[in-house]
Simulated assay, not measured.
Amino acid sequence: MRPRARPAVVQQRPGPHARFLEEGRPSPLGATWDGRGVNFALFSAHATHVELCLFDARGEREVERIELAERTDEVWHGYLPGGRPGMLYGYRVYGPYEPRHGLRFNPNKLLLDPYARKLVGRLAWGPEIFGYVLGHRHHDLSFDTRDSAPFVPRCAVVESPAGAEQAFARPGTPWDRTILYEMHVRGYTRLHPAVPAPPRRAAAALALPLIPTSQPRSPS
Rank of each mutant, 00 (worst) to 15 (best):
R117G: 06
K118N: 05
L119K: 02
V120A: 09
R122V: 12
R122F: 10
L123R: 12
L123M: 14
L123N: 09
A124I: 13
W125E: 14
G126L: 02
G126N: 12
G126D: 07
P127G: 02
P127D: 12
P127N: 03
P127V: 02
P127F: 00
P127Y: 00
E128W: 03
I129Y: 02
I129M: 06
F130P: 01
F130D: 08
G131E: 04
G131V: 01
Y132A: 08
Y132Q: 04
L134K: 10
L134Y: 06
G135A: 03
H136C: 03
R137Q: 10
R137Y: 05
H139S: 15
H139V: 15
H139D: 14
H139F: 10
D140T: 10
L141P: 01
L141V: 02
S142G: 00
S142V: 01
F143V: 03
T145M: 09
T145P: 14
R146W: 08
D147W: 03
D147T: 00
S148D: 02
A149N: 00
P150L: 01
P150T: 00
P150Q: 00
P150A: 00
V152K: 02
V152H: 01
P153H: 02
R154Q: 07
R154F: 07
C155M: 01
C155A: 02
C155Q: 00
A156Q: 14
V157Q: 03
V157W: 05
V158P: 02
V158K: 05
V158I: 15
P161K: 07
P161H: 08
P161N: 07
P161Y: 08
P161I: 08
A162D: 15
A162Q: 15
A162R: 13
G163H: 05
G163C: 05
G163A: 06
A164F: 09
A164L: 07
A164Q: 11
E165Q: 11
E165T: 12
Q166Y: 09
A167I: 08
F168W: 12
A169H: 06
R170I: 07
P171D: 13
P171T: 12
P171F: 02
P171K: 07
T173S: 10
P174V: 06
D176Y: 12
R177E: 14
R177T: 14
T178K: 11
T178S: 10
I179L: 11
L180C: 10
E182P: 05
E182W: 10
E182K: 09
M183N: 10
M183S: 12
V185C: 13
R186H: 10
Y188H: 08
T189R: 06
R190V: 11
L191R: 14
L191S: 15
L191P: 10
L191C: 14
H192K: 04
H192E: 11
P193V: 11
A194R: 08
A194T: 08
A194V: 08
V195L: 07
V195Q: 06
P196Y: 05
P196D: 11
A197H: 13
A197D: 15
A197I: 09
P198I: 05
P199N: 13
P199E: 14
P199C: 11
P199F: 15
R200L: 04
R201F: 06
